[in-house]
């Protein structure tokens, strides 16, 4: 964490410190409990779960629920497992994250180093777009995707996520580049460096931290999106929609262990990203977008 622990601690008594630790540990339990419950129950046979021992470790350890969730569970009407939807999500998330991040970096560069009359208004217009309730665009988006022939396809979802993602990526890069000394850019201009040269040689090499933030943010948001996937996914539904179909299916026995394995599968990519790079994300987020 960039924010090193400071000497903010107030002198407190022993009892107060015990209380503080107790509260912190209780909340840690609260946050961990659902993950623990999902984890242990995803490797139990179904009889053990319906018996009601959700907190106990499995008596018989089995990976069958994972195998079922991945490749054979009934999703909607097809017994395909979650695998094809996982692939859909990957095919959607990779280009959408890459495109929106590149556009955001260029926009942030223009908005801070090549300022012109009215640039703040343009930025404000883009920024407001991040916060609209997406219900307001669902109907026209469905029509436009249909007209473009992109309805129910992965490219259609990529388009939707890029369009509604560039506001955030632009915000991140703009705030980050704003702190970068403009004199360096001016000096490069005087030396004859062009628009893209300056971006490539001067801005990009210092953009690592904010790129981590932008990529994690976009990856998490797009991977976790449900509304657009459910509305425009068609035959290319992403993982979240498939998981919901799996869990909500009303036919047959509810295979809770399979549901949990599926839920963990759906959560795994973002959890891994978070575990690997979460520290940088929080650090960058605090430095960049959220004033506080």
């Amino acid at each position: 964490m960039a924010v090193a622990s400071q000497d903010n601690a107030v002198q407190t008594g022993r009892a107060a410190r015990v209380f503080v630790y107790l509260v912190l540990l209780l909340f840690a339990l609260f946050y961990l409990l659902p993950l623990y419950v999902m984890g242990v129950n995803s490797v139990k046979p179904l009889e053990e779960i319906t018996g009601g021992r959700m907190m106990s470790l499995p008596e018989t350890f089995t990976l069958a629920p994972w195998a079922s969730a991945w490749s054979t569970a009934q999703i909607g009407v097809e017994p395909t497992g979650l695998r094809p939807y996982f692939i859909n999500s990957l095919l959607m998330v990779v280009p959408a994250v890459a495109i929106s991040t590149v556009i955001g970096a260029l926009n942030g560069y223009v908005l801070t180093k090549w300022r012109f009359r009215g640039d703040t208004i343009i930025f404000a217009l883009m920024l407001f777009g991040c916060f609209i309730p997406f219900q307001i665009v669902l109907i026209p988006m469905a029509l436009v995707l249909g007209k473009l022939g992109l309805a129910g396809s992965v490219p259609g979802l990529v388009l939707v996520h890029v369009v509604y993602g560039i506001g955030f990526t632009t915000l991140y890069y703009r705030n980050y580049y704003a702190a970068f000394p403009t004199e360096l850019v001016r000096a490069a201009m005087i030396d004859g460096a062009g628009f893209f040269q300056i971006f490539w040689r001067i801005m990009l090499p210092v953009s690592g931290p904010i790129t981590v933030v932008s990529v994690i943010w976009q990856f998490t948001n797009i991977w976790n999106d449900f509304l657009f996937g459910a509305s425009f996914g068609g035959t290319s539904q992403p993982m979240t929609v498939a998981l919901n179909n799996l869990v909500q299916s009303s036919t047959g026995v509810k295979e809770y262990n399979v549901h949990f394995a599926g839920a963990i599968l759906a959560a795994l990519p973002t959890l891994i990203v978070y575990v690997v790079a979460g520290r940088y994300f929080v650090r960058g987020l605090m430095a960049g977008s959220v004033k506080g």
């Binding site: 998490t220 449900f226 919901n244 759906a266």
Partner: peptide, 9 residues
Amino acid sequence: YPMALSFIV
């Protein structure tokens, strides 16, 4: 970490 999960999960 819960912030990394989707609301569906």
